[in-house]
């Protein structure tokens, strides 16, 4: 013990200098080469800040594409999921409530067309994406709310589909913020 305690102390101090200090500074220095300097990517349209590129926003207005439900109401300073188990009766009732409310706002949509991502909460509560089907089922509502031709909105969704990586790996999805920014610019 005695012959170990001093080396252990000194080694720990040196590790603090090296891994809390130098390593952090190296990564911090690398961050300075980025346009946002590692502070976070902000989306700016016509000089106006619209939000964070990676972080999903709450959209509940009929004229916008809705984001997924969030257990933390899109609070990016306290993110989290619902942690509801798949068999929890209260949870299942909540999902049923979301389905019913979706159908009220989207009277042209049949129940079997609603994809589950639109009525379940994401893991982070900040999911920036919805599934492709999740975007398409909202098209009619948005076209009506904005007085746009349905085809026009459909085309817009198609343009904003993010393909899987190299078209081969992963999921196909639609970034809600980008799509809604574009939607606001569409006449």
């Amino acid at each position: 013990m005695k012959q170990n305690i001093l080396p252990a102390l000194r080694l720990t101090i040196f590790c603090m200098i090296f891994f809390m200090g130098i390593y952090t500074l190296v990564v911090l220095a690398a961050a300075q080469t980025l346009p946002d300097k590692g502070k976070g990517k902000v989306v700016i349209v016509n000089g106006q800040e619209k939000g964070w590129e990676l972080i999903g926003q709450k959209f509940t207005d009929d004229k916008y594409f809705w984001s997924r439900p969030s257990a933390v109401d899109y609070n990016a300073a306290g993110a989290g999921g619902s942690n509801k188990g798949p068999s929890n009766p209260d949870y299942l009732q909540q999902v049923q409530g979301r389905i019913d409310s979706f159908l009220v706002h989207n009277p042209d949509v049949k129940k079997e067309e609603i994809p589950s991502d639109l009525v379940t909460a994401s893991g982070s509560g900040l999911d920036p994406d919805i599934s492709v089907q999740g975007a398409y089922v909202q098209v009619k509502r948005i076209a009506k709310a904005r007085n746009l031709p349905v085809e026009r909105v459909q085309e817009l969704v198609k343009r904003y589909i993010t393909k899987p990586l190299l078209s081969m790996f992963g999921t196909e999805r639609v970034n809600v913020l980008q799509l809604n920014i574009e939607l606001d610019g569409t006449k």
Partner: peptide, 22 residues
């Protein structure tokens, strides 16, 4: 349990998951 509600699960079970990972 969600299948029984009659909606689609094109990706699978999505509670607690992110769309970008699936």
């Amino acid at each position: 349990a969600i299948t029984k509600m009659g909606i689609a699960q094109p990706m699978g079970s999505m509670e607690g998951k992110e769309v970008r990972f699936g």
